[in-house]
Design a protein around this nucleic acid. Structure first.
Lengths: 342, 342
DNA sequence: CAATTTTGCGCAAACGTTAGAGTTAATTTT
DNA sequence: AAAATTAACTCTAACGTTTGCGCAAAATTG
């Protein structure tokens, strides 16, 4: 009943009366190169197919120093933003024959470092990292060593590493302009985690838009310390106390927007009648909120796909691959959470 | 500048004047067993720590036939339900020293089979699979071979495999009873993908609740063919045409509920004033919808954690590990999408 | 002090591949 | 018909570990 289960070249080769080398060469598509006769080739291929034998990738990895594996480190796979990126990374990688080893850094720089080290220790061929975003010391070394590595989202532009991010500056600028176009002047900004590249770029976009329209920038309207729902809730509460005259909130993530919505509800401010809201990063559910949220959409899928492609480039030629920042455009998705005033 | 980078036992042993064997034994914690002197042990450990050397896991895997790797196959990592499970799988697995190789079957049985085969071919020590749910032929063989394998969510109870799922029957029964308690009699049911264990169990719970209260079961009120938003939207549209007198909709997933909400909005039926809605599976955003959705919550995190633990059991003793179904309780989270009528 | 036990370690083989350098027999060239 | 070429393989070593067995030196025993 149980098939003999041929699980090594040696067994197969014995069965077929050829050498392991020959089997290896046929199965790795090198039959031509090494002049294996068509008959032998067919016999081996047929037998391997019948017994569905695949050369042991572990042994292969040892011999070839290639594991056909890519490491992926993400701050929180349960966050839909990162899940979207991961989904595309997995799919594009598979299309190129690579498997993904997934690590979750839980938004924790120490765990991130540990994960990165673990993955290199496991001899992944390359790595895609969505950094937590606060420190980059542990990456400088790998940048110097020119290991195949691509940063996504919370990038560090000055490290000489390949990066994929969205055009956070212009995304935020456009969204702010949209609020200004609708007559808003007192626009609060929930900034997310300070010191991260996306956070800074978004706030810059916000202030740039204000400046261009000669709307005074009020630093008290910029608040928040993380991208999570808690910060959205709390800082909106505080904001309403400190500046009751705000007519709009620009939340730098969709979780922040969710928190802001909760706070506004409790304070009996209606959206958009009393306060307009724009979020950052589109998610399917935003269209179903009350009201449907206007938001700055980021191309998740493209980000994941681009990261894998940049990485494949590096893996092909570690020395002279492009190591620069790729900036993907955002788009403003207008729904019903912004109201024209004045 | 570049450190010598000791990357093999041989190099380390040469440097320290001992044999590779000794280094291996110390670094694998077998110093005691093989009577390595404390001084030698310390010297080796210190040196390894300083150069942060770890024995090559690939070579280790080849020799030991263990990869310290678990395969995880998921129908769609971008779906928050599965992302939640994955998150916990990754974290618990890491806590036990295992890395996760992630595959996405894209809700496609063929891709699922391919992923499963790929993972075994890569010599994962065990696998956690959230099956697409339609066919199980490709799993029977692995069940017979007693490979470490745990099914999650869309389980096949009769395969002799370890399974983790939620108590879909009672979850649906309780939710339906809640609707009945609120006076609803014409309750539509968006069933999700027919033929899957969760789908069937949920519909059974629904009909069981009706029967227990002597409410006639109308098969025309059960509709739908997948768990996605599209089905929720379309089938709600059709349902409203076919049975305009429905006062409640029980959606067997949160995406279905989202679709239903969209359809109801278009048809100018207010929720919950005209139609009450209950969803299945809680997600953070459900609390922020208009209205906040009452839903049957599933313990995602526990599901992932339980799956890893069952798997670890099997990997420790493949022969006599528990191979049965684990049923986790659901809880009804009451928000504002159900209204009392009559 | 000879015999035995213990201590501390090394040797060699094996895990399953693969690349380069042979090797043999058949075919072609001159 | 001898020499050269080509076809079709095989042999060997190496990738970096781990483990059973072996062995010299030191320590203990009688």
């Amino acid at each position: 009943m149980n098939s003999p289960s041929y699980n090594s070249l040696k067994l197969i080769s014995k069965k077929l009366g050829v050498s392991p080398t020959t089997v290896s060469r046929v199965l790795s598509g090198q039959a031509q190169k090494y002049r294996i006769s068509p008959e032998t080739e067919k016999a081996i291929k047929d037998f391997a197919a019948k017994e569905n034998f695949t050369p042991n990738p572990i042994a292969k990895g040892l011999r070839l120093k290639k594991t056909l594996t890519i490491g992926l480190v993400i701050p929180d796979i349960a966050n839909p933003f990162f899940a979207g990126i991961a989904s595309q990374v997995v799919n594009v990688a598979r299309a190129h024959g690579y498997a993904i080893v997934l690590c979750d850094s839980e938004e924790n720089p120490a765990l991130e470092k540990q994960s990165v080290d673990l993955l290199w220790a496991r001899r992944v061929d390359g790595m895609i990292l969505c950094p937590v975003g606060q420190t980059s010391d542990h990456l400088a070394r790998y940048a110097r060593e020119k290991r195949p590595l691509v940063l996504v989202d919370r990038v560090f532009p000055d490290l000489g590493l390949a990066c994929v991010s969205t055009d956070n500056f212009n995304g935020a600028k456009t969204a702010t302009e949209y609020l200004l176009d609708n007559g808003h002047r007192r626009i609060a900004c929930l900034q997310g985690m300070p010191g991260t590249a996306p956070g800074q770029a978004r706030v810059s976009g916000y202030t740039a838009a204000l400046r261009a329209r000669n709307v005074p920038f009020d630093p008290r309207l910029v608040a928040g310390d993380s991208f999570g729902e808690q910060s959205g809730y709390l800082d909106t509460k505080l904001l309403i106390q400190a500046a009751p005259d705000i007519t709009a909130i620009f939340a730098m993530s969709n979780l922040l927007a969710l928190g802001a919505l909760r706070a506004l509800g409790e304070e009996n401010r209606r959206v958009p009648a009393d306060v307009s809201v724009i979020a950052f990063d589109d998610q399917p559910y935003l269209a179903h909120l009350a009201p449907p949220l206007t938001t700055v959409a980021q191309p998740h899928l493209e980000m994941g796909a681009a990261a894998v492609k940049l990485l494949l480039d590096q893996m092909r030629s570690p020395a002279n691959a492009l190591r620069s920042g790729l900036l993907l455009p955002t788009s403003l998705i207008i729904r019903k959470s912004v109201q024209k005033i004045n």
